[in-house]
Design a protein around this nucleic acid. Structure first.
Length: 177
DNA sequence: GCCAACGTTGGC
DNA sequence: GCCAACGTTGGC
């Protein structure tokens, strides 16, 4: 009896060990490629970049509470000629106070924020992959299985949004076709 | 550049 | 806490 319990316990331990990505999340970050896009990231693939300047509370909450090291992120190009998903980055540092909010020189300066109770957060990401072609928003909207992604919903204005795993994989498959 | 759809602000 | 006014986003 005891032996069997031990075996089951060991099985559970090894199961947990072999499933490190169980808690991994997928995201989509919007950006204007004329300001900062996938090409900027691809220029120095070994360096991490600070994803700063997010000034929306719902997006802030994602950055602060849920975006974790190892999460994968679609980079989405908006307000440009080729609107759509352009590539993938990986999160290398989880949420921390966005330093630009304290910098009066920055266009992201927020005089109402303070060091003790920072209002805005950022994460660090690292270039992973640039797609041969941008997966156009138009095409994403035609995919019947994409129903939860914020992009296909009306009035989608969040700059940081979660991507459910099934839809992540569908989108990824479209990209490599 | 238009404009619909949001989010934020601030007076009450 | 309501809500009108205003600012911003982002596809087209």
């Amino acid at each position: 009896m005891l032996a069997q319990l031990m075996i089951e316990w060991q099985f559970l331990l090894s199961y947990a060990k072999n499933q490190p990505d169980k808690q991994m999340n997928y995201w989509l970050f919007k950006t204007e490629p004329d300001v900062f896009g996938i090409d900027h990231l691809a220029t120095n693939p070994n360096q991490s970049e600070m994803w700063d300047g997010v000034r929306n509370y719902q997006a802030r909450n994602f950055l602060r509470d849920q975006v974790k090291v190892g999460d994968l992120v679609f980079i989405y190009h908006s307000s440009c000629k080729n609107i759509g998903i352009a590539g993938i980055t990986e999160v290398v540092k989880a949420g921390y106070p966005d330093p630009t909010q304290f910098n009066p020189e920055s266009k992201y300066f927020d005089p109402k924020s303070n060091i003790d109770t920072p209002r805005w957060y950022c994460v660090d990401i690292k270039f992973s992959q640039k797609f041969d072609q941008v997966l156009p928003l138009k095409q994403i909207k035609l995919m019947p299985e994409i129903t939860e992604l914020g992009l296909v919903k009306k009035g989608h204005r969040l700059s940081i949004m979660p991507v459910v795993p099934t839809e992540w994989h569908s989108l990824l498959q479209q990209c490599s076709q």
